[in-house]
């Protein structure tokens, strides 16, 4: 948590990606892998957004679909779709997105915190004419 707050105060680098036409981002420090969509084993009796678990170098890492998690219609995934693996308290979680856009550097003054407390989107970053939604990974994963 402390690290995230530091990001909001000091700025840093983001990995921006798209899902359903919007731009979203994680802080680059929380991302451990970006990979092609792997083979995913479905877990029964779980919500549809949870795609299942995948074998990431011998670890069973859960993977979710960002569109479904955010209540957007399921997209068409192609060879440019990928899974971003983020690390939360040293536990990994994969998130399937339409495509990864860019690595953006941002200054603290570019970051606007969301007025909604503890929302899935914790803030916004304006880069050029783009508005990037900064995701609260903890909220996204724990629901």
């Amino acid at each position: 948590m402390a690290e995230e707050r530091r990001f909001e105060e000091e700025g840093g680098q983001l990995i921006a990606f798209t899902a359903g036409g919007n731009y979203y981002a994680f802080e680059i420090l929380s991302v451990t892998d970006i990979m092609e969509v792997p083979e995913i084993t479905h877990i029964p009796k779980t919500p549809p957004y949870l795609l299942g678990i995948t074998n990431l170098r011998g670890k069973a890492v859960p993977v979710m679909d960002l569109r479904l998690r955010l209540g957007l219609p399921e997209g068409n995934y192609d060879h440019r779709s990928c899974v971003i693996v983020i690390e939360l308290n040293s536990l990994q979680f994969g998130i399937r997105v339409d495509r990864v856009a860019d690595v953006e550097s941002c200054l603290p003054e570019q970051i606007v915190l969301s007025p909604a407390e503890n929302g899935v989107v914790k803030g916004f970053v304006n880069v050029g004419d783009r508005r990037i939604f900064l995701i609260n990974a903890d909220r996204l994963i724990r629901g």
Binding site: I43, K45, I53, R142
Partner: peptide, 20 residues
């Protein structure tokens, strides 16, 4: 299963874990 899935109550559904 990853502790990040704890809130899904997989154990109660009869799933104890997985194996690669």
């Amino acid at each position: 299963f990853s502790p990040l899935l704890n809130h899904l109550k997989l154990k109660e559904a009869g799933l104890v874990g997985c194996s690669i």
